[in-house]
């Protein structure tokens, strides 16, 4: 092993592996985000329910999940659920936990977005005798969702970074790959730096796109 400050040959030798880890990170992020977007909407709708026996428990659950660390939730999904017969691969368990955790965040965005819809829209839908489903799908959501896109985008970027925590439950994503490479050669500088660079190369441009979207929707 050469005594350079930053060994580029070493970097080139492990880069293919690290990129494989990045692919897993991206897969986890996308699947978990879709899950968070759907669960968040369900939680937001549930919290708005006129039946307090639905709205209040869902509200309490959202508050509880938001107030506890993702890492502990991951451990619960990974260590506790199998004891009750729910055995799933770490990749799936981690993705579900990440999606559920961020679902509680996206539900707040949906809630704010739905609250921003003018009362007149609801009244008009009722006056036209629209069914609740048609009111939601045809009137409320199409107006509420576009302004939420920047905020949802922010959470997509956050989830991409937070997915690193899945390394703690043995999901071989970017961070765990970097750590394994480092442990094998006892050189941590290059793998962790390159992992950081890869995270940055994706999340920074994405956050710039989100900023542009924010400006676009703020202008309206």
């Amino acid at each position: 092993m050469s005594e350079q400050f930053f060994d580029w040959e070493y970097v080139i030798s492990f880069m293919p592996k690290l990129l494989e880890g990045l692919v897993v990170t991206i897969e986890v992020t996308i699947v978990a985000f879709i899950l968070a977007a759907i669960l968040g909407l369900l939680m937001a709708l549930g919290r708005r329910s006129s039946n307090p026996w639905i709205a209040q428990p869902i509200g309490a659950l959202v508050e509880f999940i938001r107030s506890t660390p993702l890492l502990v939730q991951l451990f619960i999904f990974f260590y506790v659920l199998p004891r009750y017969g729910l055995r799933m691969p770490a990749f799936i368990v981690g993705t579900i936990a990440l999606g559920l955790h961020y679902g509680t965040y996206t539900s707040e965005i949906y809630r704010a977005g739905i609250d921003a819809i003018d009362r007149g829209q609801w009244e008009a839908a009722r006056a036209l005798n629209f069914s609740p489903v048609r009111t939601w799908v045809g009137i409320v959501l199409p107006q509420a969702i576009p302004p939420m896109i920047p905020a949802l985008g922010n959470y997509l970027v956050a989830m991409f970074k937070e997915s690193a925590q899945l390394s703690a439950i043995t999901v071989v994503e970017l961070t765990l790959t970097a750590r394994t490479i480092g442990t094998q050669s006892f050189r941590f500088l290059e793998p962790f730096t390159m992992a950081g660079v890869l995270y940055f190369l994706i999340s920074y441009p994405s956050s710039l796109v989100v900023q542009r979207l924010e400006k676009r929707y703020a202008g309206k």
Binding site: E162, G196, Y199
Partner: peptide, 24 residues
């Protein structure tokens, strides 16, 4: 600000914990 916001906090933690004690 952009480096610390643009990368994962876990990687930052590992970087500080595993990289700093070693040469250089």
């Amino acid at each position: 600000v952009e480096v610390f916001r643009g990368t994962s906090i876990l990687v930052q933690l590992f970087w500080i914990f595993f990289v700093l004690p070693l040469p250089p």
